[in-house]
Design a binder for these strands. Structure first.
Lengths: 250, 250
DNA sequence: CGGGAAGTTGAAGAGCGTCAAAAGTAGTGG
DNA sequence: CCACTACTTTTGACGCTCTTCAACTTCCCG
């Protein structure tokens, strides 16, 4: 993991190993319009930039742990992150995937509600929680935006509960590909073909299935001509509308 | 459904049918410490009370619908509410039960993310969304509290995803009774025996099971001496620790 | 009391999980 | 550059948990 802090060429006392200078300030940030940062006026961006630490992770590196104290919050600037919870016997539930622009670090009682791990190469902007608090006071719009984001997350959680509680494996997989496609569109891509950065195991743990079932269902969707493989682990949706009907259970 | 507005003996123009005067102001509210309202200083409670409409519902009455525009937010003052989403073919997922002090009406894009329905007799305090916005501006502490509540809801949603995606029927039912018990404790009761206000169908739709499975698992827990029936649909937890171990999957 | 909803119990079946093995893919080092 | 290794993915056979379908019982409220 490498860490770098904007505006500082040398590591700070409380900084972690691997820091290095960062060139791009918040003003040039490509995900700003997507994130909480969008609530900060252009002319005040330097106040934001002064607090941020850029962190880079590679695949499977942990970002923080479920049990640990929530000291930081993060904005994803590149890559995919998975958040998950573990049961004592090792059963895993991936409760979400986070992409560019997403806010990471909602916590309750000063403890993270889940563990977070990089799926592939990931870049994050990190803030001290107290710095965020100060920024929230300074820019009340930011707090509104954060509440908006939390509301959005809650709505997404409802969707996921419907999926986990009431959908078949086939419906789950279809929903999953469409979700990935929608997210890619939101972030500026065309959403088809969709990049699938995560492993079958991650997908299985996200959908409440096993890797075998995930694999089998994907195979059958391919055989039916609804999807096909593309280079670099991408999937082309050959019949998005049909997939949508499957996903909703018609 | 009966509706009443504090400080006004006669219905207001925009009020719904069945209004009647309400005696108890926010100052005497028993759930205030639990709810967002706790963020409003004692001496300013009249500002809150001026905006509130008390609404009463009986079992199975709808409070609002998934598809409808989110005009109001609510605080539950008595009774139990279920919130749920429907799939086109009628499959239902109950995404939560709300109790005294809970906030109802988180919405995204001005539309409710779910339908809400009274489980038994229910009392709500209703606010116009714009009135709430104004109150949030007036009492910034309230916004913080609301963000806190949303964070708490998100953590609870994570728990529910673990339950739905990874737990067995037995583990789900055990978790459910313990959750009810914890909630009763938080609201001042002793949490054992626990009142079970909802039907088997509601429980099934909450846990991603069928009514038959719910019934069967409860029967087997009884036979094992882990729980027993009490008057008024209550359940006594005879071995809460064992239930806890079952719930967590040990 | 009586009728309808809610809950219980049983038998049979389906969908998904488990176990196992093979095939494909990526990363490492000589 | 290729061989070696380890991991990921796929496919098959079988089994189990939970669902489905059905009948029966209990509980309520008029």
């Amino acid at each position: 993991m490498s860490v770098s802090r904007y505006r500082f060429a040398t590591p700070l006392p409380d900084a972690e190993a691997g820091e290095k200078p960062e060139i791009s300030p918040c003003g040039a940030c490509s995900v700003r319009r997507l994130a909480v940062c969008g609530a900060v006026p252009q002319e005040d961006l330097h106040e934001l930039a002064a607090q941020v630490v850029v962190q880079n992770f590679t695949a499977k590196q942990p970002i923080f742990d479920e049990s640990s104290i929530a000291r930081h919050v993060y904005i994803v600037t590149a890559g995919t992150i998975k958040i998950y919870r573990l049961m004592p016997d090792g059963r895993r539930q991936v409760t979400g995937f986070l992409f560019e622009g997403d806010f990471l670090g909602f916590a309750h009682d000063n403890q993270y509600a889940y563990s977070a791990e990089a799926v592939g190469d990931v870049s994050l902007c990190r803030f001290q929680k107290e710095d965020l608090e100060r920024l929230l006071k300074r820019f009340p719009e930011m707090e509104k935006r954060l509440l908006d984001i939390a509301n959005h997350e809650l709505a997404a959680a409802q969707d996921q509960m419907v999926l986990l509680g009431r959908k078949t494996a086939r419906e789950k997989i279809s929903s999953f590909f469409l979700m990935l496609s929608e997210r890619a569109k939101k972030n500026g891509g065309d959403g088809n073909p969709v990049a699938v950065a995560m492993t079958r195991a991650d997908i299985a743990d996200y959908l409440g299935l096993t890797t075998e079932t995930v694999s089998r269902v994907i195979s059958s969707l391919k055989q039916e001509g609804l999807i096909e493989n593309c280079p670099d682990h991408a999937i082309r949706l050959l019949a998005p509308d049909t997939l949508g009907e499957i996903a909703e259970g018609y």
